[in-house]
Design a binder for these strands. Structure first.
Lengths: 340, 340
DNA sequence: CCACTACTTGCAATCGCTTGCAGACTAGGC
DNA sequence: GCCTAGTCTGCAAGCGATTGCAAGTAGTGG
């Protein structure tokens, strides 16, 4: 009789009640054995834990969530998982969250501002907090959207919102210096999308560098969407500008430009030099590999989680600014002597 | 007094009760207005919906989950989000799930078998079903792991588990034919990791193709991990084999081989031809672009969700087998006449 | 030997939504 | 005008955890 009951119970998902009754104690004690171990006599606690292990008990998150108002889930909103910038970041976030027994709800907005708004609203009630990477929304709308939900913004600075940023202006200037020292004098900057914060920052860094010198030609092209195809299409503009040194908004765009130049019969770095930004997988796997400015994607992800947890704990948080570094690789060379 | 109460309530998150009381009806009716609209008189339903809109009501998922046993979340387990094969797939899954008002819990196992087991166990209680892509676990363990949770396996066939597969054997043979017609006679096959189902399938397809002919040399190399670095390291083996036509397990490996060949002073496709598999972003963005066999990643993702829903609905499901296609691009050319 | 902490435990309410059941109300058929 | 069959609606009991409060136990000092 008893064995039947036991068997029947073990078929069902175990609950604190099933554990409690099989141990002859109350459910509250079982609950506390997990959530407030120090409140429970150690012998009892061990018995509970052992039993839980035995029957494969796992707390019901929905029930806990209902009682505590916490879901144990973080939302992660990114504009385009297909952009190789994000996968390493997503992985880092996921791993970091896992350390704290939290899971990640992944949302891809497809680079659409409206989707960003809709999706945030949709997942808001299901998550404890939100990590939103490279949002495209104007600051005002973004801020309004994010009020009421603990969140941290990655790769974008918005006054009043906790941020984790990547600052590559120094490295970008180093890249320009490097090209300059190789005797490049004609530079082209390919700007990224105007709604992308990083694009503005990077453009500014390079522009400031350029403004300091009188012995160079400097052309700005764009805004250009951070996609391969757009980069490829931009190649003609680069050729028209006569620039021999190209600073692309990101690696994907750089790869596009290289392809576009190839369409026009040119080879990198023989005919022109180019440097990208972010050091995505692409940059390392293309041949020749791409000279670029690295982004500490893994740190970025970890810090995003750390910061979000601080926000959730009500601790004061300061914006974090991680540095990119110049990675010298195969797409930069001295300019070719040109027929004139 | 009343206004104070109202204000206080509107500050809080709205519930079916707050809506019910402000409308003078019962909470059940409000609940039904959402979950079983046809059971509610249309005038009432509209009033409820209007009020809900007004106060920004969103059902509490935890509460619903507790009552129904459904979370509205699908788990998506992949071995390595960093592998460019997966992002488009993940996006497709996420979008498809969104259509049904479900979200995606993303988990990256880091290509570890043990992690696969641990992570599945960890998220199992939090999701309605599981989509598990390219699992590395042996069939037996996998099957046991997945009993009790509705799941669909992608890119791996396991008897008794619903699967969504990508069959590229035909396209792979076409690729081999194409190389043959260009007069290649020395082939190398770079096998993928032995725990990867796709690797076994692809190797078999190519091997069968090769076994049919007596006028070729055919070398198998591997197993090789599907990473850039491993492909790069494999280049020397390729050169040693003397093969001029290379069939790589996937695009990432192919890119690695190209880089490795470049290290050895060779150029693709001048010195050797190579074809990859999957048509990941990488394949399209490298210069020259990679001849490869496409994988219908978007369809794969959608079908995975469709299949999972069928499983959840208790409908019978049949394994789905989508076809890859040969994409001719820039890394294949006739073999160079070699000094002898 | 009793009162007084300090620990442990159990009771019971609560989180917000779903749903079986029963009652109320409406409308059509005779 | 009465009965029957629908339609709608509300009541109340869950779902499985958490947690404030009170009761019980034990250890300590007077």
């Amino acid at each position: 009789m008893l064995s039947v009951t036991e068997k029947g119970e073990s078929m069902e998902r175990a609950t604190i009640y099933s554990i409690a009754s099989s141990l002859g104690i109350s459910a509250s004690t079982v609950s506390r054995a997990f959530s407030r171990p120090d409140m429970v006599k150690s012998s009892v606690r061990e018995a509970v834990l052992a039993k839980a292990e035995e029957v494969g008990y796992q707390p019901n998150r929905a029930a806990r969530g209902l009682a505590t108002g916490q879901t144990g889930v973080f939302g992660l909103l990114i504009p385009d998982i297909t952009n190789p910038f994000f996968p390493p970041f997503v992985r880092a976030v996921q791993h970091a969250a896992g350390q704290y027994d939290s899971e990640i709800l992944l949302i891809d907005s497809g680079r659409s501002q409206n989707a960003e708004e809709d999706l945030v609203r949709r997942i808001r009630p299901q998550v404890d907090g939100l990590i939103i990477a490279s949002p495209r929304l104007p600051s005002g709308r973004l801020k309004k959207l994010l009020t009421g939900i603990p969140s941290v913004v990655v790769n974008r600075a918005v006054r009043g919102l906790p941020a984790v940023l990547c600052d590559n202006s120094t490295a970008l200037r180093q890249a320009a210096d490097h090209l300059y020292q190789l005797r490049h004098r004609k530079f082209a900057l390919l700007r990224g999308p105007s709604t992308a914060w990083a694009a503005v920052q990077r453009a500014r860094a390079v522009r400031e560098w350029a403004e300091g010198r009188t012995d160079i030609e400097f052309t700005e092209l764009g805004p250009i969407e951070a996609q391969f195809a757009d980069g490829r299409a931009a190649a003609t503009g680069v050729v028209d500008s006569g620039a021999t040194a190209i600073l692309a908004f990101d690696d994907l765009m750089a790869a596009g430009v290289i392809a576009g130049l190839s369409d026009l019969g040119e080879t990198v770095p023989r005919d022109r030099s180019i440097v990208g930004c972010d050091d995505v997988l692409l940059a390392q796997t293309m041949t020749p590999s791409l000279t670029t400015v690295t982004a500490p994607l893994t740190d970025l992800g970890q810090q995003a989680v750390t910061t979000l947890r601080a926000v959730l704990a009500g601790q004061p948080v300061r914006d974090l600014r991680l540095q990119g570094e110049l990675a010298l690789r195969g797409t930069v060379a001295p300019p070719r002597r040109r027929r004139r």
